[in-house]
Amino acid sequence: MGAIYKRELLAYFKSPIGYVFSAIFFAISGICFVSTTVSQGSTNTSAYFAMVLMFFVILIPLLTMKLLSEEKKLGTEQLLLTSPVSLVGVICAKFFAAFTIFAGTLGVSSLLNMLALYDIASQQEYVIAKMNLPTFIGCIIGVLLIGASFIAIGLFISSLTENQIISAVVSIGAFALIMASSAFAANINNTVIRVIVKWFSVMDRFIGFQRGIFDITALVYYISLTTVFLFLTVRVYEKRRWE
C-alpha cells in the first residue's frame, strides 16, 4: 500500500496535474480571501470558505479524474491486482495520495491566510481573539472532510471508465448536483425524494463548522460518505473480477 501511495504522489508532480491543481487552488483561494476578508477589514472567514467550496466542483476532478481510469487504460491495474496487496489497500492508497495533495495545498494556503488574518486583527486590541480562529479552524476541518468525501466520489467515478475526460466531466456534473442539492431540496414535495436529496446535500452540514461549532454528527456524516464511496469503488473491482 505504501508503494502505491508513494508512486501516486510522485505521479502528481511528474505530470503537470499536481502543479495545475495547486496553482488554481492558490489563485482561487487568494482572490476569494481578499474579497471576503482583507478588503472588508473583517476576520470572519466563513464566507471565504463557502466560496472556495464552490470551486471544488472543478478542482477535485483534477485530482481524481485519472486515479483509476488511467490504470485501466495502461493495463497497470493488472500489475497492482496481481501483486500481494489487497484491493482495499490499492483503493485506499489512491485515495490518501489524492487527499495528501489536497490537504497539503489547503494547508499552505491556510498558513498564508492566517498571516493575513493576524495582520487584519493586529490593527485592533486582543489580536488573537480578533483573529476569529474558531471559525477559521472549524472551517478548515469542514473543508477537509468535504474534500475527502468529494475525492472518494471522484475516485469511484474514475473506476467506472478508462477515459479520464469522461471521468472528469461526470465528476463535475455530480459535484455540481451535490452543491445545488441543498438549494433545490426545499422545493421538493415528495418526502422520500427530499430526504434522499437532503442526505446528499453536503453543504448543509458545513454550516456548523462555519459558526465554529464542532458538530460530531457532521463528522460522522462526512466520514460515512467517504467510506461508502471507497467501499463502492472496491465493489466495482470485485464485480469486474467476477463477471
Partner: peptide, 8 residues
C-alpha cells in the same frame, strides 16, 4: 500488454 507507467 506490459503494465508500465509511461511517466516513470
Amino acid at each position: 500488454h506490459p503494465p508500465l507507467y509511461l511517466d516513470m
